[in-house]
Amino acid sequence: MKQFSLLDLSPIPEGQSAGHAIANTIALGVAAEKAGYHRYWLAEHHNMPGIASAATSLIIAQVAAATKTMRVGAGGIMLPNHAPLVIAEQFGTLATLYPDRIDLGLGRAPGSDMETARALRRHMAPEDSFPQDVQELIRYFGTEDSKVRAVPGHGTHVPVWILGSSLYGAQLAAFLGLPYAFASHFAPDMLEQALEIYRSSFQPSETLKEPYAMMAAGVCVADTDEEARYLRSSQLLAFAKLRTGKAGKLPLPVDDIDARIPAPVLHQVNHALSCSASGAPDTVYRGLDELITRYKPDELIVTGMIHDHGARVHSFELAAKVLKSLVSSA
């Protein structure tokens, strides 16, 4: 593993507003830079009462403005929701404001339910234009002469990543010679197969000469295993509510998680979030070391939702110390 990074879903805790969540995201970005994270990504979600990063490029701009050296970007933008030119202009503007610091991860999913997708004015065409849209977007960042240019954007060469939770993204990233990030923090089942396909079928490009794979993992680090178990209960509750169609703000933590979530649902939640490590620093070190040894990512991006902002910052600060030790021992 060469680098470690942070994925922030900008959670809105119960009892707080989207404004609080955005302020927390900016503060966490500042703390992440001090802690040594290589990049800080935010994700596009819509119609989600507990996530404040719907206007992803705007939040990226706020985090980039509050930091100095850390890379900031999207993990990711759901490209089917947008015209490639619009995204090229947005991220070209970000790259102009913050040179050599902006990343653009692209996803194929809508990041919402179908009714919300229609509200985004998506053209619900049966054909899949994602590969063509990705290539169109990359051209806008290049120096190729064209009647249509992204201004700003033209010539910025914003790094483009392909994101995925299935084999499709792995195949596309390999074919286009782009870096690849797998969403194993909530969809771990195809991680091993996707990485194998990406690495074995990778075609070198002007962008990338060798495959570069990132995997995502959940973390919840506290001073003790017991405290981490308590803090992580908020994320388990939130994911259970999402799975049962009752999405809401990030719940307060509880001591009796087994009594709050029906056993079959909790089993599903624990499986979906199994690519993770939770506990005191030593416990998390062992958990992350096992994941890194098994999957051999070039980069690990960690994420985690904790209701209390101070505890969340502390968790990622402790995680950074663990990750630094794992990088130095690699």
Score class of each variant (00 low, 15 high):
residue 231 L to N: 00
residue 162 I to C: 04
residue 259 A to E: 05
residue 139 R to Q: 07
residue 161 W to L: 07
residue 230 Y to E: 06
residue 212 Y to E: 02
residue 262 P to M: 03
residue 183 A to H: 01
residue 187 A to H: 01
residue 196 E to T: 06
residue 160 V to M: 03
residue 251 P to K: 03
residue 175 F to G: 05
residue 266 L to K: 02
residue 243 R to D: 03
residue 192 E to W: 12
residue 190 M to V: 01
residue 157 H to C: 04
residue 157 H to P: 00
residue 176 L to M: 13
residue 192 E to L: 03
residue 217 A to K: 00
residue 148 V to S: 11
residue 236 L to S: 10
residue 180 Y to M: 13
residue 188 P to M: 12
residue 204 P to I: 03
residue 165 S to Q: 10
residue 270 N to K: 15
residue 249 K to R: 15
residue 166 S to A: 06
residue 241 K to F: 06
residue 250 L to G: 03
residue 201 S to N: 07
residue 223 D to R: 11
residue 163 L to K: 08
residue 145 D to M: 08
residue 230 Y to K: 09
residue 206 E to L: 12
residue 235 Q to Y: 13
residue 144 E to K: 14
residue 157 H to K: 10
residue 216 A to R: 04
residue 222 A to P: 08
residue 158 V to T: 12
residue 212 Y to H: 14
residue 160 V to L: 07
residue 144 E to G: 11
residue 203 Q to A: 12
residue 226 E to L: 05
residue 172 L to E: 00
residue 271 H to G: 11
residue 262 P to L: 09
residue 154 H to Y: 15
residue 164 G to Y: 14
residue 153 G to D: 09
residue 211 P to M: 06
residue 203 Q to T: 13
residue 179 P to I: 14
residue 140 Y to F: 15
residue 147 K to G: 11
residue 219 V to K: 08
residue 187 A to D: 01
residue 176 L to W: 06
residue 253 P to M: 09
residue 236 L to D: 08
residue 226 E to R: 12
residue 149 R to Q: 05
residue 267 H to T: 15
residue 189 D to H: 09
residue 250 L to T: 09
residue 175 F to W: 06
residue 203 Q to G: 05
residue 173 A to E: 14
residue 247 A to I: 13
residue 248 G to F: 04
residue 249 K to D: 14
residue 230 Y to Q: 05
residue 236 L to G: 04
residue 203 Q to M: 12
residue 179 P to C: 14
residue 254 V to W: 10
